[in-house]
């Protein structure tokens, strides 16, 4: 079940977007999301859509693959649209049940905007994870957040923890599977019963899993120390992040989009 999560999944192709510096993509995604909240008319969304279309086209990730990831938020989308549609006060267009429930002109407008905003938000951020490997992403984050070191935030350590966590997810999943099978073989029942019973049934799964995770962590720490790991100080980078020409161009495009989008979108 955990294998089905598409969030943060990387789509392997070799496009310009894939090769961009992760800092550009991280910053770009953030600015793109913020820009969505500035729009007050249709034109802003048109520009955002055009910008997204350009990015998707350049990334060569199939559009259907991106939309597939949207299914997860379909329910959330519907609820949001419904609330905005029925509960916004203003000029009524249609009303049901003797005027208790009505759809207003403002409601339709708001619902459409919210829906577009949510869709763009999800597509925009999944464009980042689809085109950036998790490793690259942590590297980019580490470098972008480096100024926080002044406030004693352990930036390098957090980035290291993230990449180790990512490395061990498949191993621990496999282990969970193994323990589950071992416990089922001894008569454990994970499938039937009420919620409370099911939660209780998880105990014989979680305890060995935690013990093994701690043991692994201990081994890994030893192995890292044996290979001279001593924190971020004085550490060289095998794949250092250096801005290329294409990153400059990407920043320029982003700037143009922001000026155009917010300038026109707020008219």
């Amino acid at each position: 079940m955990l294998r089905d999560i598409t969030l943060g999944q990387y789509y392997q192709t070799d496009s310009v977007i894939h090769r961009l510096d992760p800092r550009v993509k991280l910053g770009g995604t953030l600015l793109f999301i913020i820009s969505l909240f500035f729009f007050q008319n249709m034109w802003g969304y048109v520009i955002a859509a055009a910008f997204l279309a350009l990015v998707i086209h350049l990334s060569t990730v199939p559009f259907r693959y991106i939309v597939k990831g949207m299914r997860a938020i379909l329910f959330l989308l519907l609820i949001t649209v419904a609330f905005n549609l029925f509960l916004t006060p203003g000029t009524p267009l249609v009303s049901f049940f003797g005027g208790h429930v009505r759809i207003t002109y403002e409601g339709i407008r708001l619902a459409v905007f919210i829906a577009l905003r949510l869709c763009f938000l999800i597509i925009g951020s999944s464009m980042m994870t689809l085109t950036t490997t998790p490793n690259n992403l942590t590297d980019g984050m580490e470098k972008m957040l480096r100024p926080l070191k002044l406030f004693k935030v352990p930036v390098h350590e957090v980035a290291m923890m993230m990449s180790i966590a990512l490395r061990f997810i498949p191993i621990l999943l496999e282990e969970t599977d193994k323990i589950m099978k071992a416990q089922i073989a001894r008569g454990a029942d994970f499938e039937s019963g009420k919620l409370v019973q099911r939660a209780k049934a998880m105990v014989p799964l979680l305890v060995p899993l935690f013990i093994s995770a701690f043991r692994r962590a201990n081994d890994l720490a030893l192995a890292m120390e044996a290979r001279c790991y001593r924190g971020g100080e004085g550490r060289a980078k095998m794949k250092p992040l250096i801005y290329q020409k294409r990153d400059g161009i990407a920043y320029l495009c982003l700037g143009l989009y922001l000026v155009a989008g917010i300038g026109i979108g707020r008219l």
Partner: peptide
């Protein structure tokens, strides 16, 4: 429990990086 990198070459580079 002793491979740190998510790609083979990154793991081999871990020691020299440190």
């Amino acid at each position: 429990n002793q491979i740190i990198g998510q790609v083979v070459e990154e793991d081999v580079g871990f020691g020299p990086e440190n």
